[in-house]
Design a protein around this nucleic acid. Sequence first.
DNA 1: CTGAAAGCGCTTACAG
DNA 2: CTGAAAGCGCTTACAG
Lengths: 328, 328
Amino acid sequence: MTIIDVARAAGVAPSTVSYVLSGKRSISPQTRRAVEQSIRKLGYHPHAGARSLATSRTNVLALVAPLREDLTVMDFVAAVATAARNHDQDLLLLTKDEGPAALRRVISSAIADALIVMEVEAADPRVPTLLALDRPVVLIGAPDQPVDLSSVDLDFAAAGGRCVEHLADLGHRSIAMVGPAPSVYQRGISSAGRFLSGLTDAAQAHGVVAKARPCAHNYDAVRACLDALLATEPTGLVVNNEAVLPTVLAELHRRGLRVPDDISVVAVCSDSAATSGAVPLTTVPIPTVELGELAVEMIIRQLGRDAQPETRLLAPRLTPRASTALRS
Amino acid sequence: MTIIDVARAAGVAPSTVSYVLSGKRSISPQTRRAVEQSIRKLGYHPHAGARSLATSRTNVLALVAPLREDLTVMDFVAAVATAARNHDQDLLLLTKDEGPAALRRVISSAIADALIVMEVEAADPRVPTLLALDRPVVLIGAPDQPVDLSSVDLDFAAAGGRCVEHLADLGHRSIAMVGPAPSVYQRGISSAGRFLSGLTDAAQAHGVVAKARPCAHNYDAVRACLDALLATEPTGLVVNNEAVLPTVLAELHRRGLRVPDDISVVAVCSDSAATSGAVPLTTVPIPTVELGELAVEMIIRQLGRDAQPETRLLAPRLTPRASTALRS
DNA sequence: CTGAAAGCGCTTACAG
DNA sequence: CTGAAAGCGCTTACAG
């Protein structure tokens, strides 16, 4: 089933079929109709390899994702996959631990046209490769030190600030934050640091006392973290660590702290995590759908003409729910 | 950077480079060395499209996944991606909601060689397409009515039985089960039904009273479900619904039921969910890594010679932890 | 508005 | 053990 079969069935030359498909030159209505009918009747799909050989374009985007158990990562993968299809691109999935060689391979072999890379760390060994590739690249998650690559991210500094502002508006004067695992800070995932400094700055600006701690993903770490944070009896708690969120809430309950009566809680998490517990949580969601769509749009734009690297930070939005209340 | 450049650099014919790469004929050690050196020096990667055009093989596997917020789905995607790379295949990611047309497109366009499809439902519209494609297909999750396609899955009937057996061994005589959402049963995801009947059969065999309820993913549903299940004061609880697990545990605590003192809990969930709360949970994990590896192996085998469709159900393993104890 | 043909970069019979 | 050449199925200048 090739373009020649379609051409024969429609009584035209193969090149005409090609032009009907690409729309790159004007075709008489009758010819177009005949060709389109043959295509449909024969169920013709052009051979991707042949097309890629002729055009040096694959219409495949590669997404490099850290494939761990993490709902936010899952959300991003889903968002990028959907956005890619909306732009007539297929999505190749690469795992983070394949390293720089996989990026070279996929581009040099013309398996994909461009790369979307999640969670690029400070001093990430993939950055030099990404730059050398000289292909469209968009990072999801702005890196610590700015590199000469495009990226999209939530404005985590503003998000940290927004959480403080919300609690301050409700009269809270002492707040605490459960952060990501220490390893996240160490690896230089900048969102963690930016959230923290946004929170700290806003606390200062609002005259609020703020205390922050990282928190690893296990029960003992959660207990130790809360022991430290609750010592000064904060009335507001910010949780920027979706993995430990259920455990944090369970632990507050165990300690006799009612939400929001004794302590207000605002979390950075997905909507489904926010609404599955007894108390619906006030959240600043990570806009994965918008970020995925934006990343794909930027890649597509770069595939057209070569654009300058740009960084787009989306403004956070806070969804108030029942877990935050006026300080009693 | 083509095979001709490599050939020139090594002083051989392009076909020789090809044969060095494929190992399909014997090459003198000197020639081989020269070619391999040129390949490395030039950083040569064969053009995937050209290769696919010449061989009608892409070395790409397509995975059709339901991209919702679900850690088990994430685990499967990660497992299949890793297994694919271990077999020198790349992974194209398709979403479940693209439907049958996407399957035809990907195969007819020679974008991928074979399909791994998750969560095929009873009367799934994709099944006829999958059969008509006449390409290697492996389902992850055995469908309700057996179809003429290969599949891999956990033996959910045995898993349900294993949970009962474990609780019965500990002296429990009345148990309850929190099942997946009603919609899951309705859609005919067979794992839910098979788990339930395995549990029911084993209960009968062990002289245990068992009560089961589906449970949607929100707080009210969890409360209603537990209201119904706890009315008869079971001493053992089986949770086959990872999404509501934290909420179920929180709700038990709220009702003053201590785990495992008042009620033993065994869950079907990932290890990370099992160990993040106050009480480490006895679990029957879904062996996503093994299933993903198995699915890829079966696909690769089918790509070689055409094999008969086969269904492989992996035996469940139960990991005892602190959430189950002798009935007091 | 349409066609004939070169060329994209591989693989693999065919030949030696 | 190695090479020259046909062919895979497209696209796109070139020509009319």
